[in-house]
Design a protein around this nucleic acid. Structure first.
Lengths: 282, 282
DNA sequence: TAAATAATGAATTTTAATTTCATAACTCTC
DNA sequence: GAGAGTTATGAAATTAAAATTCATTATTTA
């Protein structure tokens, strides 16, 4: 049996006007449909509720509920689908947006695999593992990743620093040496503040690791080690949402890799922290 | 990520008498359940319909419909998708870890759909839309989401506040009123600092929105609005990695929903910000 | 051009999901 | 071991969703 989506594609030309619109909507937003009600789907595809039922019968399924179940099954089998976020419409409810965001974030994380270079990653882990201080810097949407990273590496026992304040960073960097690592986070690779601090850190001898998209940006060119994030669609409406997810995935990888290497050494401190937390009942 | 069936097996011993019977029936007849109605399942497992709903919540899923969809997905999943994170081995290279993290993060985001309640989401958006101040608070791994949210809502023109400092927050909350919103972020729903500040904010009349897992935690019980994240596997090695992704997905949804509502009003400011940034060449 | 046919949506009915509320059973004090 | 609190539960009521009916409009055919 061919998949349900396949089946819809096949019968699409034979369908009537209204039913055809349903078919198109389903093919474009397969992830969202299983969570929708008839009413919602009817509004999205501008048809009546009755037509939805008729559509289900047209493609050989007895009820709308069965259709949703069948579609869900289909999706888990085929997996890769393209829901375009630009299909955002005025009438999207928060719940619709929720499902679109789930999809966009999932896709972004998935495509991380395409842009990462294993050798660069290995170099980054090596550099961090032997680092004295680790400084993270990102502005705007990229600051989230910097803050997250700072917390994670502190938990691992590192002297880990970040700040949103350019001037604060200016006072941190002079103390860096060849043993230290500066992690610059910038999606575009062109952010002036990030670039300037990166160059400053390199001048002090620190290793500069860039978490940025694979492009001809200054940051990409100048960094010592490049951890590339995929070029996820940049749309002002979604802003930095998906690119932040990719940055965090890279941070997670660095964290887990270091944990893997030095895990044994910090386990005791982990347990200490946890039991003390229980004592303090936090 | 453990499968839904696995999850049911695990919690079975903790379930009450009636809920336990449901669990057993589901495990014995997993294929049948997605096509059943609540009434049918309640008859088959000799419990009331209300108990079925309670069972769904007990295993961390927001509604019976989501439960059926999740079960359907579970049944069609092949073993290939079960890259269990517990299969972490000593010899995993950073690149191996990278792929495992991609998988864990993707699964976490995917399962967000199961625990979210559309009505609660609508209530949250409504509350935030009309809010004066918005205060975000999370500690430990949840602070990342708080920081991210604070930034996003500031961009939307809100008076948006967060801090890691409990004492600072103590000085912020007295100024909250009925018009304001306090967003508490805690995976477990038991974090004392978060609970205390939430209660304080409620005492001042603010609406308390909880971003937490669906469970019988104090935060879940006491919040005015609950945005539930899925119960992703908690393993000390991966720490808060996947749960942070789910929290961020919820934040993204709130941000996009508000943007959708008030977007027109802030677009000019967005453009202003961008062109000024170009002037300053940042 | 009129009758037959097909497509469609508004309104209604039926069915299912969810919530509320009352009650029974079970714990924990004092 | 009496009473206060808590938990577990199902019956009943409410709300939401799905399915059907029926009237209307467009389209085809004789």
């Amino acid at each position: 049996m061919t998949s349900l989506m396949q089946k819809i594609k096949e019968v699409l030309p034979q369908l009537s006007d209204a039913e055809g619109r349903i078919g198109e909507y389903v093919l474009e937003n397969p992830e969202a449909v299983p969570h929708m009600t008839i009413k919602e789907l009817s509004e999205k595809s501008s048809v009546s509720e009755a037509t939805i039922i008729r559509f289900c019968k047209s493609i050989g399924i007895g009820s709308f509920k069965s259709f949703k179940l069948a579609l869900m099954k289909d999706l888990t089998l085929t997996d890769s689908n393209l829901t375009d976020f630009s299909a955002l419409t005025k009438k999207d409810s928060p719940y619709d947006l929720f499902h679109k965001i789930i999809h966009v974030n999932k896709s972004a994380i998935e495509s991380c695999a395409d842009s990462m270079d294993r050798k660069e990653l290995a170099k980054a882990v090596e550099a961090i593992q032997h680092a004295g201080k680790i400084v993270f810097f990102g502005v705007g949407g990229s600051s989230t990743a910097a803050v997250d990273a700072q917390y994670k590496f502190t938990k691992l026992g590192y002297h880990s620093i970040t700040s949103l304040d350019f001037h604060y960073m200016l006072s941190v960097i002079p103390h860096l040496t060849e043993k230290d690592v500066f992690v610059a986070i910038s999606t575009s690779g062109k952010t002036k503040d990030v670039l300037e601090l990166t160059r400053f850190a390199q001048k002090k001898g620190a290793t500069a690791i860039a978490i940025t998209t694979l492009s001809k940006s200054p940051l990409y060119k100048e960094a010592d080690i490049r951890l590339c994030t995929p070029n996820v669609e940049q749309d002002f409406r979604i802003g930095s949402i998906p690119s932040r997810m990719t940055q965090l995935t890279v941070i997670d990888t660095l964290y887990m890799s270091i944990f893997q290497q030095i895990g044994e050494k910090v386990l005791q401190q982990y347990y200490d922290a946890r039991s003390e937390m229980e004592n303090l009942r936090r």
